[in-house]
Design a protein around this nucleic acid. Sequence first.
DNA 1: CAGGAACCGTAACGTACGGTACGGCTTACG
DNA 2: CGTAAGCCGTACCGTACGTTACGGTTCCTG
Lengths: 218, 218
Amino acid sequence: MIVVQAYEQEEVQKLTERQKDILDAALRLLVEDGDNLTMAAVARRARCSKESLYKWFGDRDGLLTATVRWQASKVRVVPVDQGRPDLVSLAESLESYARDWLKVISSDTSVALNRVAISHAGSGRDKLGEIVLQNGRFALAGRLKPVLDAGKRAGLLAFEDAETAFRTFFGLVARDVQIRLLLGDWPGMTEAAIEEDAARATKQFLALHGAGKGQQAN
Amino acid sequence: MIVVQAYEQEEVQKLTERQKDILDAALRLLVEDGDNLTMAAVARRARCSKESLYKWFGDRDGLLTATVRWQASKVRVVPVDQGRPDLVSLAESLESYARDWLKVISSDTSVALNRVAISHAGSGRDKLGEIVLQNGRFALAGRLKPVLDAGKRAGLLAFEDAETAFRTFFGLVARDVQIRLLLGDWPGMTEAAIEEDAARATKQFLALHGAGKGQQAN
DNA sequence: CAGGAACCGTAACGTACGGTACGGCTTACG
DNA sequence: CGTAAGCCGTACCGTACGTTACGGTTCCTG
């Protein structure tokens, strides 16, 4: 479901093990305490000196950015290999993407990271929002669109624009889950609920864009 | 599209005109500068003393909460009167809700308010998230469900659970718009795009839950 | 072992900001 | 006109935190 991958070789590769430990500590703190992430707290938790934090990451924003990048390099929706595009395997692929995506957005880490990125997007001083978006929603689109296109070529799907089709799928999967989680509500995303939601979203998407029946509605 | 209504009579009614001016100033500041809302800045902008701010709103959180409530009392999706539930008027109602909702979530004010509420949801010290959610997503559900139920009674819609049907509609309308706006991305929500999105979402929802054809997918 | 680099722990500094105090101005009222 | 209340402007205080500085320790290298 989740796979470890390098995000930007030239960026992440540079990190020493020690520094990765520190970013993990910052990540845990971010999840636990929200945006109350102080340099002192990170130093205490990671058992390093503040001086080292400043040497390695420049300033607080640098540490935050590095932390977000670090998490982005870890969490990645796995690409589903699209061998033979029959209807069953297509549906399985879609459902798998939906499941993974729901798992990601309902994870503590994702919620915490999105929260801090959104806070910072307000006073647009860094590009945390862009990073999160690139490694979240846009990465998902990048993985999913080839699947959609393959389905279209195989005559299984019907749509004009892959981007629009993707956004429909996105909406059917995520619905109000992410915004509710971000706002502190708990929409009960258990394993079972995720399974059910993924299946429902897939069925709905195929109902809208499946080529079998008379597909209507864009 | 947008209508002014009292949110909680016993809360909002108490505000003097002066205090409403101050909350408007705070709101404008919130939209412009993000969460950098300082008491001094509000006092300066509203041309009042900090002492008055503390007398009227208690502390910073109180001011923030009052500001969110104040905005919540102003923005409200208008209920569409559901006189005769034929298919055309049902579709019009749905499209109207979709349009209003897209306008709300893509407005500067909504983005700013959701950002501050999300920030605070991290270090859960107040209930801004709950307020925003109640007056946003749940208020919409409250307005829309009667329409859905009426459509179902009239044999125009088919669904098991109004809540689930609402969430499907919500997903089809909002898609990735809100999260992208919150993260600082600009998904180009012009008037025309909103119009188009609302029409598309309505068509898709009717394709899924309209009772005319064989309705599949939950 | 000598020398130095890297790093830890902690103290110290500067600033921003929440919160409070106070003097002066306007308005209401007897 | 005297008095009191409400409010503005501003100065002030305390604290939290980002940032810097420094002495002591570990560890690597020649």
